[in-house]
Simulated scan of single mutants.
Amino acid sequence: MVELIAVLLLVGVLAVVALPRLDGSLGLRGTAWRDQVQAGLLQARSLATGHRRLVCVTVTIGAVRLAMASANPASSCNTTLPGPDGDARWAVDPQSLAVTVSPAGTLFVQPDGRITSDGAGLTAVNASVAIAGETTLQITGETGHVR
């Protein structure tokens, strides 16, 4: 009986110590995903201005994908850009946290760094990317600034 009480007491102490740490590390996953999305958006702007080509950014639950136009001028992207690890995704969220992009759909990064809602670059758009439990990323269309 004494051993059973000792084991239960030990399990209780471990639960009190370990669960808050586990919860804290799970909370960091959302922050890491938000940072990956932000890095993908910044990389898209850098690629568009550096290569003077249209770059298309698609943010979905669990992935950020980039594609680039093979020629300039262009109104659509036809070349998938592999991410840092060679995968077609620039950012990956294994948790598949809810992501809301406003306006919905693909964001087009023009060669001059502007973010537009169309490939032709006619309408600069201020966009936002909301990730469950994290602060929203704000994108300024005229400058391409991501904060």
Rank of each mutant, 00 (worst) to 15 (best):
D118F: 13
T135H: 06
A6F: 07
R45G: 11
A71W: 01
F108S: 01
V64W: 13
E134W: 05
G144Q: 03
V99I: 10
R52H: 11
L41N: 11
L22Y: 15
V64D: 04
P84V: 01
D85Y: 00
N72K: 01
C56P: 14
T100P: 04
G50N: 04
T100Y: 08
A18F: 09
G144N: 04
Q43N: 11
V92Y: 15
Q138K: 05
L81M: 09
G119D: 13
A88W: 00
A63V: 01
Q138D: 10
G113W: 07
R29A: 09
A67G: 09
S25I: 06
A130F: 15
T136G: 12
A88G: 09
V7S: 06
R29K: 10
T143I: 14
V109R: 05
G141T: 03
Q36F: 06
P94Y: 01
L81A: 04
N78G: 10
V99T: 14
S70T: 11
L10Q: 02
T135K: 08
V2G: 04
Q95H: 08
T58I: 10
W33Y: 15
G121D: 03
S76E: 13
A91F: 11
S25Y: 03
G83E: 00
A91S: 12
G12P: 14
T140N: 12
D93H: 09
L54G: 14
G83Q: 00
I139E: 13
G119L: 05
S128D: 10
L66C: 02
A15K: 00
D112G: 05
C77P: 15
A67P: 06
L54K: 12
I115V: 13
S46L: 04
R29C: 02
T49Q: 07
V13F: 11
Q43T: 15
V57N: 10
G50Y: 08
P94D: 04
V146Y: 12
V17R: 07
I139H: 13
R52C: 02
Q38W: 02
F108G: 03
P111K: 03
A127Y: 14
A18W: 08
V92H: 12
R65S: 12
R65E: 12
V59R: 01
G83A: 01
I139L: 15
V57T: 08
E134Q: 15
A18H: 08
R52K: 07
